[in-house]
């Protein structure tokens, strides 16, 4: 992730903001300059739901450089429909199941070495279980 690209995409990375076509209503994530449905160029900022379910997942045995193991990748089906690719966190690989509920959190995605910049972005994790009030 180079720095200008990260900066440009911070709305998507921090707040799950995509684009919605004012013509045909199609939603794009990450944001695109034109609608893939109708070719329209009138697009508005559209925040996706920060909750969904695991549609599919895999564990990459060797994390790419700059990423930390275990590298857990999932397709997450968001509450409002779109399926996006994202890392899972705060979970052990053996506990992941297709269909499980997950929520968006902001985490470190990449570290450009000890002197470089940090990339923050969305990951998904199981919601914090809420116990009975004591």
């Amino acid at each position: 992730m180079d720095l200008p690209r990260y900066h440009r995409l911070r709305g998507a990375y921090y707040r799950l903001e995509g684009r919605r076509c004012t013509g045909c209503g199609a939603v794009a994530f990450p944001p695109r300059p034109a609608c893939r449905g109708c070719g329209g160029r009138e697009l508005e900022v559209h925040a996706l739901a920060p909750r969904g379910r695991v549609h599919s997942f895999t564990e990459m045995a060797t994390a790419p450089r700059g990423f930390d193991p275990p590298h857990l990748m999932a397709l997450v089906e968001l509450e409002d429909g779109p399926i996006i690719a994202a890392q899972l966190t705060d979970i052990d690989p053996e506990d992941i199941a297709i269909g499980m509920e997950v929520e968006m959190v902001t985490r470190r995605i990449q570290e450009k070495g000890p002197h470089g910049y940090l990339v923050y972005g969305y990951k998904f994790r199981p919601p914090v279980p809420r116990g009975e009030a004591s």
């Binding site: 930390d68 705060d90 902001t106 985490r107 470190r108 923050y120």
Partner: peptide, 13 residues
Amino acid sequence: PGADEDVVTMAIE
């Protein structure tokens, strides 16, 4: 903290 956590991510949550 997890490997992907720091003061920024924790403050955001």
